[in-house]
């Protein structure tokens, strides 16, 4: 028996003033799964989220959430979905409780139920102690937690999280992951848009990699990483990655592809034991000061590089 589909997207196209933001996106999200949408800025993740949240109308194609068409039954879809955009949606002059009560009102919750649910959710995101404090006094991490609590006010079966950890420090990000894992454990269906490959890798059951309005790969994180091939990654950390260094290490990498930043270069090889000493030697020859060298398995970023030839930024 096949798994039950919570969200179905078929050939979705969205055009803004002659620019195609989505170019025929199709996928299914199963009930209870965390579905990652990974892609750089401008890949079309937010546009897709907005269509599924019932905010935008698609130019063509079809999308259904829990069997409801997002265009024809937009209000029903919005009542079933919890939407957490990347911006702070709380009104900063109000306190957390007032914000929760306001959003509860938008979903038509009676006052007593709204109060009970708001308390529960503020407790869930560990904000009950500061429920009467104006949101403007909250840290970035606290505001994101409040965003999440607001997204849950209608007890949604499907949760749309649009880059929920963008701009957070590593600790606050790990904190947010903890809550998302908790929601997954409750059996909610979660669509998680992110440009952090580590986030998609850790939280998602399946990941759709998007680029320029298209889904260019869709599978479990493990399968996607395997698609890079039986390659290992040698990462050379240096003080400064010069062009000469990149050129030298590119010559040692499989197919000549490397991934580099200001202070590192990643190269790919089927034979790390043989290539590692050569890489160190080439680095020293290029005049770079080596900080560390490591061998690891490919990441989703490596998958994106393989598919597009560009870094995931």
């Amino acid at each position: 028996m096949g798994r039950e589909v919570a969200v179905s997207v078929r050939e979705l196209v969205k055009e803004y003033d002659g620019t195609l933001a989505l170019r025929g996106v199709s996928f299914d999200i199963y009930k209870g799964e965390v579905f990652g949408l990974l892609g750089p800025n401008g890949a079309g993740k937010t546009t897709l989220m907005n269509i599924l949240a019932g905010i935008l109308l698609p130019t063509s194609g079809k999308a259904e959430v829990l069997g409801h068409d997002v265009v024809r039954e937009s209000r029903a879809v919005r009542a079933l979905v919890g939407f957490c955009p990347q911006e702070t949606v709380a009104y900063e002059e109000l306190n957390a409780m007032e914000n929760m009560m306001f959003y509860a009102g938008l979903y038509g919750l009676p006052r007593s139920e709204a109060k009970r649910r708001s308390k529960e959710l503020l407790e869930f995101v560990r904000l009950l102690d500061v429920a009467k404090k104006p949101v403007r006094e909250f840290s970035g991490g606290m505001k994101r937690r409040l965003n999440l609590a607001i997204a849950l006010i209608n007890d949604p079966e499907v949760l749309l999280l649009d880059e929920p950890t963008t701009g957070l420090d590593p600790r606050a990000r790990r904190d947010a992951w903890h809550y998302i894992e908790g929601l997954k454990a409750e059996g909610r269906t979660i669509l998680l848009a992110t440009h952090y490959m580590e986030e998609a890798d850790r939280l998602s059951d399946r990941v759709a990699i998007m680029d320029l309005g298209r889904v260019i790969a869709l599978d479990t994180p493990e399968a996607l990483k395997k698609s890079v091939g039986e390659l290992s990654v040698i990462e050379v950390h240096v003080e400064e990655a010069s062009e000469a260094l990149k050129e030298a290490l590119s010559a040692l990498s499989e197919n000549g592809k490397i991934l580099s930043g200001e202070d590192y270069v990643r190269l790919y090889t089927r034979d790390p034991e043989a290539v590692l000493p050569k890489a160190v030697e080439a680095t020293l020859r290029a005049g770079a000061k080596v900080i560390s060298v490591s061998v690891s398995e490919p990441t989703l970023e490596d998958v994106f590089l393989k598919l597009t030839g560009r870094r995931l930024e």
Binding site: I55, E87, Y107, G108
Partner: peptide
């Protein structure tokens, strides 16, 4: 400007 509009319109209101 407050960036709350999208979230408001994602609620089941017209």
């Amino acid at each position: 400007d407050r960036k709350t509009l999208r979230r408001l319109m994602a609620a089941p209101i017209g």
